Simulated assay, not measured.
Amino acid sequence: MFGLTMEKVLIIGVLAVFLLGPEKLPHYAAQLGRLVRSLRDMANGAKDRMRDEMGPEFDDVDWKKLDPRQYDPRRIIREALTDDAPEAVTAAAAAPTLTRAAKPAVTRSRPTPLAAGEPAPFDSEAT
């Protein structure tokens, strides 16, 4: 949980004993226990409320698939392309790919500088 190992928890406990003192430590430990219980109750309440509002579809949801750590844009695009149009993927695979040297050059025109005393362009709808 939160990347805490047993050694780190032990060090935090020893520091708490020294900083808080043995008189106040039981009081703060009880407060921490109440906080953890209230957070757990809130999470369970939210889950129960979600189950009530979503109905039977709540159990059908694949929560691991919705995990943001599983987000891979390349995989999502690949799945979208293969599911929607498999013939487009095969056509794209059959087409020859352009190498960096064979790509057409893009020409960009430079804006012309303003003449002396010429006002700058102004867009009244942009403000």
Rank of each mutant, 00 (worst) to 15 (best):
H27Y: 10
E125K: 09
A43M: 06
R100T: 10
A105I: 13
D83G: 12
A93S: 14
D84G: 15
T112C: 14
P113E: 01
A115V: 02
P86M: 02
K64C: 08
A126M: 07
L25R: 03
A46F: 05
D72H: 14
R69F: 10
P111A: 11
D67R: 11
T97N: 14
P96L: 10
E118S: 11
A92N: 14
E87L: 13
A94K: 12
A120K: 07
E7L: 08
G13V: 03
T99W: 04
K103M: 15
Q31Y: 13
P68Q: 02
F122L: 12
R108G: 07
T5M: 04
P86G: 11
P56V: 00
A80S: 12
P68H: 05
V9A: 12
T90F: 02
P121M: 12
E7K: 09
T82E: 03
T5Y: 01
V36H: 11
L114C: 04
R34G: 04
G3P: 00
D62A: 01
A92P: 01
T99S: 00
A93Y: 14
G3L: 05
A30C: 12
P56R: 14
D67E: 07
R78L: 08
L19I: 08
A101E: 11
A116C: 02
P26F: 01
S124E: 08
A115T: 01
R37G: 05
D72P: 01
D123K: 03
A102L: 06
D83C: 10
L32H: 02
D62Y: 07
W63T: 05
P68I: 00
R100E: 14
P56Q: 13
A93E: 15
Y71E: 09
L66K: 07
T99D: 04
L98K: 15
D59T: 06
L98E: 11
D83W: 07
